[in-house]
Design a protein around this nucleic acid. Structure first.
Length: 429
RNA sequence: GUGAGUGUAGCUCAAGGGCAGAGCACUGGACUGUGGCUCCAGGGGUUGGGGGUUCGAAACCCCUCACUCACCCCA
């Protein structure tokens, strides 16, 4: 084979492409119901935007970005995530202003140069929602509820919500100091990466999956016991709001997000039905991020859903939103060459009425026409030859039931209502 | 970036040193204005690619590429 898709990227073909689209529509609807409005963001940005926001020493920035140069030598990057882009756009267009609330969501492809595996691709899709403005526990809880309720409603198999607080600029330094001291004292029990991380990003050590490290971490100080009064109250009120809303969660003192910008509330939805990449949605609060990107001092909270992972979960549960509707309502077949123009006219008329139809111009035998019609996914076949052409009718046959009827062609009420009435209601939405 | 497993027809898979095959799919016909069934016939392959061993390689060895899963990391 001469050409094939690059490693880690996938072609989505029907009917999977259609289910994927419906999944995206579901998410769009869910966010819209919670007051978010969509922004369409560029797929590449100045590389510095991501190094600044995601963090210099994160894996994403260190080794996973697709970097390239513009014609003028600018350093550009294919976006590895959406929050940085969205904030850049919000700042640039003055949507992030003190005292004002912006609820925005985005949806689209992200790029990370990683080794592909189950639930992990080099080009993948995320849908993310961000609330800019309020620094309010109820806002956090409401955002979390939006996704948790979606998960409940659609029945995501094995989904659990993990919850933690990362503290703020006031309390994190003290915790960091205590944690570093704890880790330094037990250096010999830690893996190589973790030892390096003590210096670069000690909180990430908490996340390490090496067994020895986890054992060592069992007695490590928990961030939640170092929270300053304000952060503590914020976190408690988030928990309380979730309790009152009957949103189940699991307190996870060692939950640390992989991006540096998170403060206060951090959360992650996981499912053990996913394989090694168990997170299907995640987010948190990022109170210093907008200002560090050159915007005003506006707090924010947001999350992102991994669409492919969501797809995998829904596929496993057998709840993918597949279309019940046939892709084509009617396939029209000319029974002789003289009827071809007649068929073309009917196609135009039906399409003007909003009825999807195709012409079977390649079939030279009636039997082949039937096979082609089925292959197109048509509900009906329409036949026109000398007889029909002569009296301005068309013969319609229901491919499922075998019922057949000759009716006036064109936009005749009889034809249109026949084609419409037999279409089963789209039960997928 | 590291490791393991797998690459044979469009798909699912046989053949484990001696003629590359089956089922499904595809094309044509039986069958010229009424399909799905059946029957007959046919097209399809540098066995992922390259090199080596051998009289002979899909098979054994080396390299390489791709896929899958895991590490890592994350949505």
């Amino acid at each position: 084979m001469k050409y094939q898709a690059p490693r880690g990227v996938k072609d989505l073909l029907p009917p999977e492409s259609e289910a994927f689209r419906r999944l995206e529509d579901e998410i769009r609807e869910t966010f819209t119901l919670s007051g978010f409005r969509e922004v369409r963001l560029p797929i590449f940005e100045s590389a510095a935007l991501f190094t600044r926001s995601i963090g210099e020493s994160t894996d994403i920035v260190e080794k996973e970005m697709y970097l390239f140069e513009g014609k003028g030598g600018e350093k550009l990057a294919l976006r590895p995530e959406g929050t940085a882009s969205l904030l850049r756009a919000a700042i640039e267009h003055r949507l992030a202003e003190p005292g004002r609330t912006s609820r925005l969501f985005y949806q689209g492809a992200m790029f990370r140069h990683e080794r592909p595996q189950a639930g992990r691709l080099r080009q993948f899709h995320q849908a993310g929602a961000e609330v800019l403005g309020p620094n309010d526990p109820d806002t956090d809880a409401d955002l979390i509820a939006t996704v948790s309720r979606y998960a409940q409603r659609t029945g995501i198999p094995g989904s659990r919500l993990l919850l933690n607080s990362m503290g703020c600029e006031a309390c994190r330094p003290e915790y960091r100091k205590q944690l570093v001291a704890y880790l330094e004292a037990r250096k010999s029990n830690l893996c190589e990466t973790c030892i390096r991380r003590i210096g670069t990003n000690p909180l990430r050590v908490l996340d390490c999956k090496v067994e020895g490290c986890q054992k060592t971490l069992n007695a490590a100080p928990a961030i939640t016991s170092f929270l300053c009064p304000a952060s503590r109250e914020h976190f408690e009120r988030v928990c309380q709001a979730l309790n009152e809303g009957e949103i189940p969660y699991i307190l996870s003192p060692r939950l640390v997000r992989g991006l540096d910008y998170y403060t206060e509330t951090a959360f992650e939805w996981v499912s053990d039905a996913l394989g090694a990449q168990s997170t299907w949605a995640a987010g948190g609060r990022y109170n210093g991020l907008v200002s560090s990107l050159g915007g005003p001092d506006v707090p924010g909270v947001g999350l992102a859903i991994g669409i492919e992972r969501l797809y995998l979960l829904r596929e496993q549960a057998g709840t993918l939103p597949l279309s019940a509707e046939p892709p084509v309502t009617i396939a029209l077949h000319p029974l002789d060459d003289d009827s071809r123009a007649y068929i073309r006219t009917i196609l135009t008329t039906l399409r003007a009425e909003g009825i999807s139809c195709v012409g079977l111009f390649g079939a030279n035998r009636l039997k082949k026409a039937f096979v082609s019609a089925e292959r197109e996914g048509a509900r009906f076949i329409g036949l026109a030859g000398e007889n029909e052409r002569g009296n301005g009718t068309i013969t319609i046959k229901d491919l499922k039931t075998g019922a057949q009827k000759t009716v006036p062609a064109g936009s005749s009420a009889e034809l249109i209502s026949l084609l419409r009435s037999e279409i089963p209601a789209d039960s997928a939405r």
